[in-house]
Design a binder for these strands. Structure first.
Lengths: 212, 212
DNA sequence: CTTGACAAGTGTACGTCATACACCTACCGT
DNA sequence: ACGGTAGGTGTATGACGTACACTTGTCAAG
């Protein structure tokens, strides 16, 4: 049932995934769902944990950097498959087992690679912030492929009221550039990710002595 | 009226801010609101633009780094004042004037500091992703001050089912650490922010030649 | 001073949402 | 044969966004 709920949300968005549409999808009456979940919040908890279960856990060991990279890419992909999950991942008050396991694996990878406690927390925090935020923007921009981004930008450019040209010159420049070149989210994501990982690597010894 | 809506949302959350509660707050009947906004989506658009208007615009000039830092801190603060705004900031299909101005100022600061077009986009993307994502986590963790975080962590620690101890050792360690030390979001935020800005600074020349 | 247009507020009503509560039914181990 | 239980049903309630028709206060043009 959780699987079905995820599928419905993937298909019609989180607002379209109502107890009614979900029950219809399952061929039962809405109230039947309440034999399996306490309420909708509980249902969302379960759905979020399914998303967590799709995220590759970083393995412990010395090669923390490539493990972090792998996990980050995997998390972004999961958030891309389930766009509705973005705002729900971190706010759960009752984290499911996959959620707990994912966070445990994250900290475990870093700590076992020699990170101090506080360095590991800093790193987790910064990386996850970047990934969530990136996925948020990705969802918000309203296109997915580079070609699509060009089309959207061209469309926007042609719709501009002429006053905008003087008011927001840099924005216009961006729209014009985008309308020709396009924008690849994956390249963009990995660029920022590597930048962040570089920063972690470089600052690690300093933090390691500062933290306990 | 938009101001009142923002105030209500700040007070009772975005779910509590219904057309009914807002109208009650204003001392009118719900339908009266529709003389000022087309629908609720339109209302949200206006509210988001108010949040944007509270974000300090970076000035153009050579000192892009401190301007970026100032704007980033300001954006995080605005998101902290209006926790409901987090998921709504980037997804607007009809961005308001303050929104456009904010993005224009962002790009303008970088480009006028000598960033290539694509470097400016990379930087904007990475910084905003970090800020949104950080604010998202901040909202999700359920406490605000360092002392509060200690209390929450202590509480969590005492509620753990014993099986969790072996399953999630690193998570337990974190909860235990937190229950004594606490966690300062502002320090955490600025640490990651500076890390990111360092990365931008270091990679800038390389990107500048790569981009067009 | 009247008029009439327009901005703002009102009242009622509808369809959709989550969900409480009482009821039914098929299957299982005893 | 029987009683418990997991799962499904039917009806109802209150909150939500908002469509539609109506009233009122204000103010410029005649």
């Amino acid at each position: 049932m959780l699987i079905a709920a995820v599928a419905v949300a993937d298909r019609v968005g989180i607002d379209g995934m109502t107890m009614r549409t979900l029950s219809q999808d399952l061929g039962v009456v809405p109230m039947a769902l309440y034999k399996h979940v306490a309420n909708k919040e509980d249902l969302l908890d379960g759905m979020v944990d399914i998303v967590w279960s799709e995220v590759a856990a970083p393995a412990q060991g010395p090669d923390w950097r490539s493990e972090m990279r792998r996990r980050s890419v995997s998390l972004r992909q999961a958030l891309g498959r389930h766009r509705w999950a973005n705002g729900l991942m971190e706010g759960r008050m009752r984290p499911g087992p996959a959620n707990l396991a994912a966070h445990n694996a994250m900290l475990g990878c870093l700590r076992s690679a020699g990170f101090s406690f506080s360095t590991a927390v800093h790193t987790t925090s910064a990386l996850d912030a970047y990934i969530y935020g990136f996925a948020l923007q990705e969802r918000g921009l309203g296109f997915e492929t580079a070609e699509e981004s060009g089309a959207v930008a061209r469309q926007k450019r042609d719709l501009q009221p002429p006053a905008a040209m003087e008011l927001y010159p840099y924005l216009i420049e961006m729209v014009v550039e985008m309308s020709r070149g396009g924008y690849d989210f994956t390249v963009e994501f990995e660029t920022g990710l590597d930048l962040l990982l570089d920063g972690v690597e470089r600052l690690r010894p300093e933090w390691a002595t500062a933290g306990r």
